[in-house]
Design a protein around this nucleic acid. Structure first.
Length: 219
DNA sequence: ATGACGATTTACT
DNA sequence: GTAAATCGTCATA
């Protein structure tokens, strides 16, 4: 039984945590006992009150983002665009609202279940929705290659907001490696989808494993 | 009470 | 490449 990442892993700055999370194993145990897992291959660091792209910019603190203040090792899961969830690993210490967004995972366990989660038809009230019946099966590289995709595949929603990664049975991170990958294996670039953040949009705070096909956007 | 807006994904031209 | 989907959240009133 592999070790989990300990609390001390998370109580560092979000850039350090974002880099060190690459290659570690995200594990989700569903209520029926099904275990889903995958290696983290893409992350983004958010720097808190000074970071215009962060939900905690200027110290904004609401019911939605309250878990950002819990300190290293907790989850911040938010709902966006009326249909998607995204998962963060909170870093630093309580009172410092910084976090790491998980943007890409390479599935390793429970792939069939993940595929089902990803293709289950969204609820609609009307009759107009079409099922994916005729579509080809989802390619493995399309299961967790995006922040909302990986949450859908691994059954992560707002019920896991505030989850404690160090103690939870439902969602945690296993230690695969003791040291972060060397710089040359980590590609870094601007964060995705934060153009509104002006000068903060260009900061190289996105990190991913070079050449890995499970990243949200190649290149 | 109201209106604008997403740390996105998918399907379509 | 563009656009639709879809609704909780937040700032303003």
């Amino acid at each position: 039984m592999p070790d989990r990442l300990p609390q001390e892993f998370f109580t560092r700055d979000s850039v350090t945590v974002a880099r060190a999370l690459l290659g570690q194993r995200l594990v989700r145990v569903m209520d029926d006992g099904t275990r889903l897992a995958g290696l983290i291959v893409e992350t983004e660091a958010y720097l808190g009150e000074k970071d215009k792209a962060a939900h905690t910019f200027n110290g904004r603190r609401t019911e939605r983002n309250a878990s950002m203040w819990l300190g290293g090792g907790f989850n911040y899961v938010y709902f966006t665009y009326g249909m998607h969830y995204c998962m963060n690993v909170v870093a630093s210490t309580a009172g410092h609202p910084v976090a790491v967004l998980l943007r890409g995972v390479e599935p390793t366990e429970g792939i069939e279940t993940m595929c089902r989660m990803r293709t289950a038809k969204r609820r609609t009230k009307g009759t107009k929705s079409k099922s994916r019946s005729g579509a080809q099966p989802l390619r493995e590289t399309n299961l967790c290659s995006g922040p909302a995709k990986l949450c859908q595949a691994m059954a992560i929603d707002r019920s896991l907001d505030g989850n404690n990664l160090v103690t939870s049975r439902q969602l945690y991170i296993e230690k695969v490696r003791n040291r972060a990958f060397p710089q040359r294996l980590i590609h870094e670039g601007p964060r995705v989808g934060v153009d509104y953040a002006e000068e903060w949009a260009a900061e190289p705070l996105r990190f991913y494993l070079r050449g890995n096909p499970h990243v949200s956007r190649p290149q």
